[in-house]
Amino acid sequence: MFKQFAGIVLFFSLFSVCLRAQQQDTIVVARDGSGKFRTLQEAVEGVRAFMDYTVVIYVKNGLYKEKVVIPSWIKNVEIVGQDAEKTIITYDDHANINKMGTFRTYTVKVEGSDITFKNITIENNAAQLGQAVALHTEGDRLVFINCRFLGNQDTIYTGAEGTRLLFSHCYIEGTTDFIFGPSTVLFEDCTIYSKRNSYITAASTPKDVEFGYVFKNCKLTAAPGVDKVYLGRPWRPYAATTFINCVLGKHICPAGWENWRNPENEKTARYSEFKNTGEGADISGRVPWSHQLTKKEIKKYSIQNIFKSSSSWLPSLAK
């Protein structure tokens, strides 16, 4: 009886060890063939659907020219680059190739939820001939840490209502409306680089969603010669965008915000700021329909409130 019991204990111990080993698996991607896969898409397709534990896809330095789709049945995955400046996912589609339209131009499309990207560059290096998305998101609870997003018009499209995203210590560049969409997104400690005179954000926040784009402790910079950039314009009437404790370069124009050539948007757009600094932070010339938050109002902009929804979510980075 004792031997039988000991055998059962041994079996479950070995099973537990094997399970832990499985849960700690790291899939290696290397363009030079030294990993299990040579492309990120192959690695994604090798991940089991609806996992309840985290799998790491480790991407070695290299230039990966591919369009990547992370489907909706993929969750609990971390995609980690070896070096943010040397691990580059790139493609060059733009909206005017065979009437492609904006929403098919992505380099990386994330449909799955609970996905984290670290130390990686996502780029759309198409010529400036139309909209060209680098990152297109549709999943919920997505985190991007120390990543670089390179492009021109429409670099990042946060494309699904009711989804929540966090960008921390990221670099984002573009020309026109290069952060756009309906999602609730917190940008913390990011660098936002404007490559020409135009607009940074084009939010399309739904009317019943309190928070759209929130920038905290970010630095807004620009290419030489760029001197008239707006913080945002409303892609949809109830666009919500806020800049908090950010450093605004002199390229930010005094008005700050634009109505997309539609005065009716001034009645509904929700644009606000709080204690920004830098040469572009002077509020004396701001459009009258934007808002400067009070000390009482700013208390609402905690990460807990920003990401509250039908389910609670507090990214591990913020704990």
Score class of each variant (00 low, 15 high):
residue 11 F to D: 05
residue 11 F to C: 10
residue 17 V to C: 11
residue 18 C to H: 10
residue 21 A to M: 08
residue 22 Q to I: 12
residue 26 T to K: 13
residue 27 I to Q: 01
residue 33 G to M: 03
residue 37 F to M: 00
residue 39 T to P: 00
residue 39 T to I: 08
residue 42 E to T: 06
residue 42 E to F: 04
residue 44 V to W: 02
residue 45 E to P: 00
residue 59 V to Y: 02
residue 59 V to H: 01
residue 61 N to M: 14
residue 63 L to N: 12
residue 67 K to W: 09
residue 68 V to K: 08
residue 71 P to H: 12
residue 77 V to Q: 00
residue 79 I to D: 00
residue 80 V to S: 04
residue 81 G to K: 00
residue 83 D to N: 15
residue 83 D to R: 01
residue 85 E to P: 02
residue 90 T to A: 15
residue 91 Y to F: 13
residue 91 Y to A: 15
residue 94 H to R: 07
residue 98 N to C: 08
residue 102 T to R: 12
residue 104 R to V: 04
residue 105 T to R: 06
residue 105 T to H: 06
residue 106 Y to H: 12
residue 106 Y to I: 01
residue 107 T to C: 06
residue 119 N to F: 04
residue 125 N to M: 10
residue 126 A to W: 09
residue 126 A to N: 11
residue 126 A to Q: 10
residue 127 A to L: 11
residue 128 Q to Y: 11
residue 128 Q to T: 12
residue 135 L to I: 04
residue 136 H to T: 06
residue 137 T to H: 03
residue 139 G to I: 03
residue 140 D to W: 02
residue 141 R to C: 03
residue 145 I to Y: 05
residue 147 C to V: 03
residue 149 F to S: 06
residue 152 N to V: 05
residue 154 D to H: 10
residue 158 T to F: 15
residue 163 T to I: 01
residue 167 F to W: 12
residue 169 H to G: 07
residue 170 C to S: 14
residue 172 I to P: 03
residue 174 G to E: 04
residue 175 T to A: 15
residue 178 F to T: 04
residue 182 P to S: 08
residue 184 T to H: 11
residue 186 L to F: 07
residue 197 N to R: 00
residue 201 T to I: 05
residue 212 G to R: 04
residue 212 G to N: 02
residue 214 V to W: 02
residue 217 N to H: 15
residue 221 T to I: 15
residue 223 A to F: 11
residue 226 V to L: 09
residue 229 V to L: 07
residue 236 R to N: 12
residue 240 A to G: 08
residue 241 T to K: 07
residue 245 N to R: 13
residue 245 N to A: 04
residue 247 V to C: 06
residue 248 L to W: 09
residue 253 C to V: 14
residue 253 C to E: 13
residue 261 R to V: 10
residue 263 P to V: 11
residue 270 R to V: 02
residue 271 Y to M: 14
residue 275 K to A: 12
residue 276 N to A: 00
residue 279 E to T: 03
residue 280 G to W: 07
residue 287 V to H: 06
residue 289 W to M: 11
residue 294 T to V: 07
residue 295 K to G: 05
residue 295 K to Q: 15
residue 300 K to R: 13
residue 311 S to D: 14
